Amino acid sequence: MRLYWKYVWILFKSQMQYRASFWLLTLGQCLTPLAVFAGLYFLFERFGQIRGWSFPEVAVCFAVIHTAFAITECFARGFDLFSTMVGQGEFDRVLVRPRGTILQVLGSKFEFARAGRLLQSLLVLFFALSSLTIEWTPLKTVTLILMISCGVFIFTGIFILAATFCFWTIQGLEVVHILTDGGKEMAQYPLNIYQKWVARFFTFVIPFGCINYLPLMYILDKTEGNGILYMLAPTAGIIFLLPCLLVWNIGVRHYRSTGS
């Protein structure tokens, strides 16, 4: 971790060399999800509720998933841009260094301008939670933290899977954005508004429903049965990351240099 934070510090200093550009990018990243949130607001302004869910409740879903995505884009951007590293033959240099490939790729790129998107998402989260009448307990606080942190694990796992395909295809596959951007757009609403097959896929395959819908039911006291299971649902994000790391190691063993 000491080496990882050195990566963070070096890249942060390099991006701050052009401060005006950095702050303009940060502002742009703040305004982009704000437009999406405005669309959500006008939707509820017109219809009032969706399948019994109020605007502040859906806003929590929105804020949690966008917060997790913003953190992932900031600190796991190296996997999202991995195709460039493979195409230019730079991964050969990674392999001869005495550190793990995951750490090096993870530390190869950080997008600190995503802090604008993160700030906007946190503001929405604060607004949504303050608009709801919730009897907060230590367990509910832990659940909220798990929702965001395990969401980061899920998005990181998807980025790793997308990067692993580059070992065979060289270029990244655009279809993976169905799971990142598409999954983000889907998960900003409660899972029960979709058809059953969609809800099952995003619960048992790509467990987005386990990081916002199910634990949110626990926070809002809408659970049926054992509430602890709803509280622990976000840990599915950690479980999802494990096979992604396994697939990555398989891909590294099958890597063939591009010769660039």
Rank of each mutant, 00 (worst) to 15 (best):
L24R: 10
A115N: 10
F201V: 10
G237F: 00
R200K: 10
G39S: 05
G227F: 01
W53C: 13
Y189E: 11
L119G: 12
P215I: 15
P243L: 01
Y7S: 07
A70Y: 13
L123T: 12
G182Q: 12
G52N: 02
Q195M: 04
G48L: 09
F62Y: 14
A128F: 01
P190V: 13
L27T: 15
F159Q: 05
R46T: 15
E45T: 08
L95A: 08
E73Q: 14
E90S: 14
P207V: 12
A163V: 04
G237M: 06
S131T: 08
R93V: 12
A68H: 11
I10S: 10
G227A: 08
F201H: 13
G183T: 09
D221M: 07
I50R: 08
K109I: 14
L123G: 06
D221N: 12
A63V: 03
P234T: 04
G107P: 08
T137V: 05
C210M: 10
I239L: 06
F127C: 00
G172V: 03
L3T: 03
L3H: 05
P207W: 07
P215F: 08
G116M: 02
Y255F: 13
Y7K: 07
G251N: 09
I219R: 07
F69R: 04
A162R: 12
L95F: 11
L118A: 03
M1S: 15
W197Y: 10
L119S: 02
R93M: 10
W168I: 04
H254M: 12
M147C: 05
T164F: 04
F153T: 02
M147Y: 03
L129C: 05
F204D: 11
W23G: 11
F201P: 13
I145R: 00
C74E: 07
G157C: 13
L229V: 06
G172L: 02
V175M: 03
T141R: 06
G78M: 02
M147P: 04
L161D: 03
V58Q: 10
R200N: 14
F153H: 06
F37A: 14
G259A: 13
F44A: 11
V176N: 11
L232Y: 00
S121G: 06
C244K: 04
A113L: 11
Y194S: 00
A68P: 09
T133W: 08
G183N: 08
W136H: 01
A68N: 09
L40K: 10
I211D: 05
